[in-house]
């Protein structure tokens, strides 16, 4: 994964070159109540591989919902339903009947708003994703744990206490552990749902540095409330408002030269 193209592990997975769309959303409408009201309406956008894409917008605009559509986390809600449109990831319609959400999620990791390590040891937290795939070989796990912790810049801080509870770490460390846990299974795409909203500014800065580094290996989609953060970490930015995609462009354009009035109002702090 060190070259700048990404691929599914399985033999028939297509190869997506850097900057080509790895996720393409086409006219997606989504409802939480079996189609009575649409939370997302007619969204179309392509997310390029190997880049960081930020979703911004005021509360309730649907940016988190869209993110959770990408790894089908919304399946947990019984009444959730994609009413129209398609999401193609790596060239495959992820809502097709023959797609298994479990398999999908092995390729699309997710980091949550509130850090949520399991009440297990640090080691077991990172190894979890591999263990559920049936990998129990100690040396393989050891290597994956070390590699992931190093990539998430946590190794030096925890290497002496891998077997202590993850809940003993500080908030920022816990969130980095969650990132390590996510990248341990080597997904192509990492979704981040406001990963810094529960952290203090110093911890936030560290996570942002980490995102910049991870960008080399993963396609990252990040939802954020914090517009400065979007400008700092992302290559492209999508602005949502009331369930619709208002504008989607290079981050510099969105913040420096928005084409649409609503975007300009939002990024300049006039509402939101």
């Amino acid at each position: 994964m060190n070259d700048s193209s990404v691929t599914l592990d399985s033999a028939d997975a297509p190869v997506v070159a850097a900057n080509e769309p790895i996720i393409s959303i086409d006219d997606l409408s989504f409802s939480y109540d079996l189609g009575k009201t649409n939370t997302l309406r007619n969204i179309s956008l392509d997310i390029p591989a190997g880049k960081v894409t930020a979703f911004i917008g005021p509360s309730g605009c649907g940016k988190s919902t869209l993110l959770r559509c990408l790894n089908r986390m919304n399946d947990l809600v019984d009444t959730a339903k994609v009413t129209t449109g398609k999401i193609n990831i790596l060239g495959q319609d992820i809502n097709a009947p023959d797609v298994e959400a479990i398999e999908l999620r092995k390729h699309i990791g997710m980091v949550f708003q509130k850090y949520n390590p399991f009440p297990k040891s640090i080691y077991e937290n990172v190894a979890y994703g591999l263990r559920v795939q049936g990998i129990n070989n100690k040396s393989v796990l050891d290597q994956a744990v070390e590699e992931s912790l190093q990539k998430s810049a946590l190794w030096s801080e925890v290497k002496d206490r891998l077997n202590t509870s993850a809940l003993g770490l500080s908030g920022g460390q816990q969130q980095r552990l969650c990132i390590a846990r996510t990248i341990a299974v080597k997904p192509q795409i990492v979704l981040m749902d406001e990963p810094c909203s529960a952290l203090d500014p110093i911890a936030t800065a560290r996570i942002e540095e980490l995102i910049a580094e991870l960008q080399q290996d993963f396609t990252i989609v990040i939802v954020t409330h914090n517009m400065q953060q979007a400008t700092r970490v992302s290559d492209r930015t999508a602005f949502f408002y009331l369930g619709e995609l208002i504008e989607y462009d290079e981050t510099t354009n969105i913040f420096g030269n928005p084409k649409i009035k609503q975007t300009e109002d939002y990024v300049s702090g006039r509402f939101g």
Partner: peptide, 19 residues
């Protein structure tokens, strides 16, 4: 959050319950 984290890592519902 534990359930979500586990599912997001590609665990099945049963694995989530038992592990």
């Amino acid at each position: 959050a534990y359930t979500e984290a586990s599912l997001a890592l590609g665990a099945s519902k049963l694995q989530t319950v038992t592990r």
